[in-house]
């Protein structure tokens, strides 16, 4: 009965077969041809996946080759300006570069400022009433149709209680209610799962804002206390606005970016 490292043991005792190395070398040499044959044969989804995998492999390969190459490539000297006396027409070159940097900085700052007033998703697709709501037929003979079922994700407040079902005009199903959103901080480039406090504005219509419908582009208020942000006066920021960037009803989750 073989036990423990019996394969290694056997190799140690009896060695490998005579042509082991030769066969191994040949198999390795054949490998590229096999891959090529497969790449030619494969089609459809498999081909797509295979090509993606190959592409990544090739990029990785190129990178490693480059890394090894750099060892013997000559580095350019950083200091382009020669030492010693410099002709007059070259003297102000450095100053010029600096000026350029400055103007760039101003532009950048303006951009950032401008960015503060705009939201990441300025435009949203209009959503028609019949896409938003499903008509629920009521009455004994199912002839009445004044009830609506909201088919999009919704947020209902903390202490929400339904109206008596008989009079409830808008039904917000439990399955589509959300309490948390995955919020990305655009500068930190980090994502946190934060509780939603309220729906600030649904760009589709104020009625939807009232109902707490969460669609793409909706501005929500999230609880950022766990991020530990502070205001300029040193107070801890509690609520902050964020805009929803995905279609929650299609993804089953809410992704948003923080508006800073």
């Amino acid at each position: 009965m073989p036990q423990n490292e019996y394969i290694e043991e056997s190799i140690k005792r009896h060695g490998r077969r005579m042509d082991h190395d030769e066969r191994k070398r040949k198999r390795e040499a054949r490998e590229v041809h096999k891959q090529a044959a497969f790449a030619q044969k494969v089609h459809g989804l498999k081909a797509k996946m295979y090509n993606k995998k190959r592409r990544n492999e090739k990029i990785q390969m190129k990178k490693t080759i480059k890394m090894h190459d750099e060892k013997d490539a000559k580095q350019k000297t950083t200091d382009a300006v020669p030492d010693g006396a410099v002709p007059a027409y070259l003297l102000d070159r450095e100053g010029e570069q600096k000026a350029k940097v400055l103007s760039n900085m101003i532009k950048q700052k303006r951009k950032e400022k401008a960015g503060k007033w705009s939201v990441p998703l300025p435009k949203v697709r209009g959503i028609a009433e019949d896409e938003m709501f499903k008509v629920v037929k009521t009455g004994k003979a199912k002839t009445k149709s004044w009830k609506r079922l909201v088919t999009k994700a919704t947020f209902v407040g903390e202490g929400f209680t339904r109206k008596p079902p008989k009079y409830e005009r808008f039904i917000r199903p439990m399955a589509l209610r959300y309490k948390k959103a995955n919020v990305t901080h655009p500068e930190l480039k980090a994502t946190f799962q934060l509780p939603i406090i309220s729906v600030k504005k649904n760009p589709q219509s104020p009625a939807y804002t009232q109902l707490g419908v969460l669609t793409k582009g909706t501005i929500i208020e999230v609880n950022v206390s766990e991020l530990g942000l502070v205001t300029t006066s040193g107070k801890v920021v509690w609520g902050k606005y964020a805009q929803i960037t995905n279609n929650p009803e299609n993804d089953g989750c809410i992704n948003a970016v923080l508006l800073v």
Binding site: E131, K134, T151, P173, A175, L176, E249, G252
Partner: peptide, 8 residues
């Protein structure tokens, strides 16, 4: 599966 029940 719950969400799918509301797929329209």
């Amino acid at each position: 599966t719950r969400l799918l029940k509301f797929g329209d």
